[in-house]
Write a protein that binds this DNA or RNA. Sequence first.
RNA 1: GCGCCCGUAGCUCAGCUGGAUAGAGCGGCGGCCUUCUAAGCCGCGGGUCGCAGGUUCGAGUCCUGCCGGGCGUGCCA
Length: 604
Amino acid sequence: MGVEEQVRNLVVGALTDLAGSGVLPSEVTSATFSVERPKRPEHGDLATNAALAIQKAAKKPPREIATLLAERLGKEPDIRAVEIAGPGFLNLRLAPAIYQRVLGDVLAAGPAFGRGPAGLGERVLVEFVSANPTGPLLISHGRGAILGDAVATLLESVGHRVTREYYINDFGNQIRLLAASVLAVALGREPPEGGYGKNDYLEDLVAWLQKTNPELIADDKVDELARVCVTRMLDGVPGSKALPGIKKTLASLRIQFDGWYSEESLHRWGRVGAALAELNARGYLEEREGALFFKSTDEGDDKDRVVKKRDGYYTYFASDIAYHADKINRGYDRLVNVLGADHHGYTARVRGALAALGLPKERFEVVLYQLVNLLRDGKPYKMGKRLGNLVTIEEVVDEIDEAARRKGAGADALRYFYLARRSDTTIDLDIELAKKASMDNPVFYLQYGYARLCSILRRAQEKFGLQVPRHASALAARLEHPDELAILGRLGRFPAVVSEAAALREPHRILFYLQELSQDFQSYFTRLKKDGDTILPLDAQMAEAGWQEKWDRQKSEARLLWIESIRTVYAAGLKLAGITALERMHKLEGEAAAAETEEEAEAS
RNA sequence: GCGCCCGUAGCUCAGCUGGAUAGAGCGGCGGCCUUCUAAGCCGCGGGUCGCAGGUUCGAGUCCUGCCGGGCGUGCCA
């Protein structure tokens, strides 16, 4: 239990007592109030506004309530001092025991610290990326990919059963255009109207097709060709740098999907027709000017939407209706779609469609992220698949890997970059900076902090044979340094941070938490050295005679336990972000850096 | 025009669902390595929280109206 939570319970207890003895009316026990760390240390370890928050229910002036509460709370052994401040804040100074208790919680839970009970939550389908399979994934797709994956991970960590799904738009205009463009390249024709001009990946694709399926090109079989092209977009063309394949690119970012759902299959199995028939039966369809409209305005949308065009083709939205109905029918309690801001109009439409079909629309939810503006040397950099200038994820990741001399560094940097911001702020991404900035990317700060913790534990093991026990211990009482207690306080807050981040679908909270944790520890570590204190005896001290008598072994052991608890939470946070927990990092000559070994923060 | 998102330090961004004197990183200036990792630590400088009202004990946070930027408002996906 976190320190705030423990204190909250004490305050609730005090209120219950006061209500029980008739000093305050019983309504005060149901009031909500805050328990938080004051910004200024003079205001104590924690402060609560309870007296202010319950003033209406208590029918007494806040200072008077505060006095009553202060008197009771002052008797608690976990509270050293209570002070009434300002209009009626209670400033509390806490006993070390309340912090030390967190240590046992962390060590007992291990990697599961902060996680909810597995499998008890909702069945959630997180759909993300779903980029058209008409080219390689671009750096701008990375935000949705990484955000979606992190949101899914967060939901899992609080106990939901999550499925990650990619919806493949393998039907309709874009795909036909792709096939027509491929043919144009293969046969040396002009690209089709609105199609894709000759480029690296189309050439690689054509070369592959000419080797493996020459008949598709020779016979002008557009539909069959389109299907083969989609497969190649997903799986890649062997040996092609320009077309590594969407699945492989996602894997390089450590993203695995559980399902790949084909739009084309919705049509093939008649689900689109069935969904529209159902809408029609319910009176939601109307023909106007030769096109078929879904009257989404009846369900709160801004305007009606076309589902079947005048040319007889279904719109993508028609498939989407069938797709989301299918998600509900597959038994999901919640449908989370991670979408770029350019799709924000989509929410009302899909909800309207679900409602019209008599399905529970409140299960549908959108996590919106703002778009990524690409810059090059500070200037806007036009992007889009139709232009020749594509910046692929592959390219950026490879370049950072190389600069950092570690496979995975690029994924770490990119994941950090995208996750360390709220999803609703627009990001400016300078391509040159993104590639070069790998060295001062803040992700290395996080990884370095973790490596330092590991390094201390390693030294304890190697030089002193000290193995850190993974359970609570009476040694916790030996932790007295204010920084040590403060960090325990922060560790205790981790579960709340995780559940909040999950509830709000805001992974950036995890990264900021880690940043602060890292800062706390590294600051402590340097200060300790400056004060001449150590966690373990240093080599120089061990060279002196009688060092063993002077060594407070218990204190070292207590601090190792403490470091292990920090490492545990740290690893859990990195794991949530999908960032590699490096056990060692060494600065190399010059600017380059590399890791010698690495370890995935393992959750088992 | 209408709808959604954003506006906080020179730059990039946090601000824990309304709390006390608004924070971090980068950049600038100045310090700290013969010892547990200097990819680090400490200090200094830097702000009318876009503007104006409102709600209340209390507003960066909630409400309204403006201003500025992004996106949407296609029988494109």
